[in-house]
Design a binder for these strands. Structure first.
Length: 682
RNA sequence: GGCGAGGUAGCUCAGCUGGUUAGAGCACAGGAUUCAUAACCCUGAGGUCGGGGGUUCGAGUCCCCCCUUCGCUACCA
């Protein structure tokens, strides 16, 4: 870490208050940030650790509506659950605030106003759907309709959950407001945009100065900056009634875009923590600002938020954004909506007092450089053969031996052998090694170094065999045990960032007041004749195959449940008329030619014989049919569909396809061979 | 298709600006030991470093092509 900084401000991504916290959140963001902060605190550095709930945005309003409660009630509920989970797992925020707080509204509002007054925004009028019955503009999420791509009748305005494509609300066929059920109308609305395109040179310059960031982060930024047309202006206000009101005349009924206000939440939380002193942490060049986030937030923390800060002018910029990748669970993506997750509050019901086991496992398997997989089997192995067998067992041996042979009193060291001196030297180096890894955000490596200290202790005991020395050379035995005890004390210090609950227990066992990081460079933290605990409790009880089986069954039930839900058949569309149906002219045709459309994944260019003409149709079926396999095949084709240019090719009609629940496509064709080209399908 | 990040022992990962027989932890096998949660300690087995070309005296490390995983993005019944 550059030494020029006098203090550090660490933020952890504000979790979105529409669900509880799961292991993915912990592994990706909260655990590494907590480890980092605990380390800095132990070093005696000036550091503050900031977090809070992100409580605005459309999904929360939808959830509220679904449950028949107010958005405030939704966020109150999850703010509490999330805050409790963090506390239970020892995530040591100095402040856990929330964006619905008064201080945040004020801060975010002021921030916007400053940028507004500086002329940082551009105003832009766009057409959005408006619900005349409810009297308000509709966020994309509030509109459902038929997906123009997969014909799913219940696609959302921003995304179709069936085919996964990203949509604009204005693309939907037969749009419907979910508020009132009425048909929305298009209406003009004004919003304020941050012209990221114009700010791009400054942003690029900023990123360019941070080529030392983690490669996944730096690469992602470069990708945003350099791909396509570069950065685009982004609306910083929304037509919505849940959020921070836009503090500008004529902006009634508008709030700040949730991604504008969320990062400002870091600032307001700091204000809440340090009403008189917060500016030191945000405006002083001697402060190092670090954002811990998951990879989904990279664009906001590395590009948009810095752009906002630059425009404002008073603030320092993030010095590092050590984003992690994603954690999978038993081979599948973690998903809140599919309940594919290990929820923190549920974990503790099954594994009482085993916070550190999860912390250890998630740190050892952290998705630092690429997506990683959490498995219960691995969790079991990490607990049993690493925490238990190496760390727990070492402590246990030392305490048992000390009590057995010295009535629980630390024996005095006399002469050190060459071997002893080598060991002591190794021990004294541990804090520096671990620290060096942590400062590079290499948490897995740091954790390994910490465990190496326990390994060293075990090895030392095995080599010196104090249980034999006690019979032959008592003086020597005392020295050996003294060293083993010192190692235990130093372990208590250096394990604290990773497994704080265990660290606390160790200090209690050793009957010591908790010591700070630099004391781990000493090898005399325990004085001779100091009394330690007389019992050697099991620090990490074994996790049995049964326990693992139980968790796997739980997950397998989730899978079954999801599968049964997924096979549910989409509801029938609204009634239509024979006349409407009759407008479609569907014919039997034969594929004459087929070839891939270059530079696309899904498109085939087909030449179809319709009986009355031969025409070109572009069809998105390349994932399911190879060109050479379908030449000569019969298809059903909608021949009177308005022509459309796709990838520069005029597509004359549409091939009818059947789609199953997995989204796989299949031609719809006559079952008898008596239908010639041009036969009418009705 | 474009861009980004990965693909190294059974598993999780190190390998910086190219240089002796490719490393670690865990798992596995054998041995030794009994203070300890059948734990610890020692030894060992294991990899054509995604594949194929090329540059070089020499490549996991550089260049080109391809395959593959994960993001973002384009296209689509």
């Amino acid at each position: 870490m550059p030494n020029s900084f006098k203090r550090t401000l660490v933020t952890a991504a504000l979790p979105y208050a529409n669900g509880p916290v799961h292991i993915g959140h912990l592994a990706g963001c909260y655990l590494p940030s907590d480890i980092y902060v605990r380390y800095l605190r132990s070093k005696g550095e000036d550091v503050r650790f900031i977090c809070g709930s992100d409580e605005h945005g459309v999904p929360i309003t939808i959830k509220a509506k679904k449950e028949g409660i107010t958005p405030q009630q939704v966020v109150d509920k999850y703010h509490k659950i999330m805050g409790d989970s963090f506390k239970e797992f020892g995530i040591s925020f100095d402040v856990y605030s929330r964006t619905s707080s008064k201080i945040h509204h004020q801060t975010a509002s002021d921030f916007f106003k400053t940028l507004y007054d500086k002329g940082s925004f551009t105003e832009q009028v766009t057409e959005q759907y408006f619900d005349t019955e409810a009297g308000q503009f509709l966020a994309d999420r509030y509109i459902t309709g038929e997906c123009p791509k997969c014909a799913n009748p219940e696609a959302y305005g921003d995304q179709c959950e069936r085919c996964g494509s990203t949509l604009n609300a204005t693309d939907l066929i037969n749009p419907k407001s979910t508020l009132s059920g009425s048909v929305p109308v298009k209406k003009e609305t004004k919003n304020w945009f941050l012209p990221l395109d114009k700010l791009q040179p400054k942003i690029a310059d900023y990123i360019g100065k941070h080529a030392d960031w983690k490669s996944n982060v730096y690469g992602q930024c470069k990708s945003w900056l350099e791909s396509g047309d570069g950065l685009q202006p982004r609306a910083m206000t929304r037509d919505l009634n849940w959020g921070v009101p836009v503090p500008v005349k004529g902006a009634e009924g508008k709030v700040l875009y949730v991604w504008f206000d969320a990062p400002i939440g870091y600032i307001s939380a700091t204000k809440e923590l340090l009403p008189n002193d917060w500016e030191k942490y945000w405006k002083d060049k001697d402060t190092r600002l670090i954002h811990f986030i998951g990879k989904d937030n990279i664009v906001f923390h590395c590009l948009i938020f810095p752009a906002m800060l630059m425009e404002h002018g008073d603030f320092i910029l993030p010095d590092n954004v050590p984003a992690n990748e994603f954690l999978n669970l038993e081979g599948d993506k973690i998903s809140t909506s599919r309940n594919w997750a290990v929820w923190l509050h549920e974990y503790l019901l099954d594994f009482k007092d085993k916070q550190d086991v999860l912390r250890y496992t998630l740190c050892a398997n952290a998705p630092e450089t690429k997506d990683n997989d959490f498995t219960w089997k691995d969790f079991q192995i990490k607990n049993n053969s690493e925490l238990g067998d190496i760390l727990g067992n070492f402590i246990n041996r030392v305490i048992v031996l000390t009590n057995k042979n010295h009535n629980g009193l630390v024996p005095e060291a006399s002469e050190y052998t060459k071997q002893d001196l080598l060991i002591l030297e190794e021990v004294a180096k541990a804090p520096e090694k671990i620290g060096a890894s942590l400062e590079k955000f290499r948490f897995r490596e740091a954790l390994g170094e910490m465990m190496n200290l326990a390994r060293l202790g075990n090895k030392y005991l095995a080599e010196q065999e104090p249980w034999k020395l006690i019979k032959s050379d008592e003086k020597r035995e005392k020295t050996v045990m003294n060293i083993a005890l010192q190692i235990s004390a130093n372990l208590a210090i250096v394990c604290e960032p990773f497994v704080p609950f265990t660290s606390k227990k160790l200090f209690e066992l050793l009957n010591l007041n908790p010591l700070k990081w630099n004391s781990a460079r000493n090898t005399n933290n325990l004085a001779a004749r100091h009394k330690i605990a007389s019992d050697a409790p099991i620090l990490f009880s074994k996790i049995e195959d049964n326990d693992v089986q139980l968790q796997l069954e739980k997950l397998s039930n989730t899978k079954k449940q999801n599968a049964s839900e997924n096979t549910s058949i989409p509801k029938a569309k609204a009634e239509t008329s024979f006349d409407d149906f009759n407008k479609m002219d569907i014919r039997v045709g034969t594929i004459l030619e087929a070839e891939r459309v270059p530079k696309t994944d899904k498109l085939l260019k087909l030449k179809i014989d319709t009986g009355f003409d031969k025409r070109t149709v572009v069809s998105g079926i390349a994932e399911w049919y190879k060109p050479e396999d379908i030449i000569g095949k019969k298809v059903s084709i909608l021949v009177n569909l308005a022509p459309r240019k796709i990838k520069g090719i005029e597509s004359m009609g549409m091939i009818l396809m059947a789609e199953n629940a997995q989204g796989e496509l299949s031609f719809v064709i006559p079952t008898k061979d008596n239908s010639n080209n041009g036969s009418i399908i009705k």
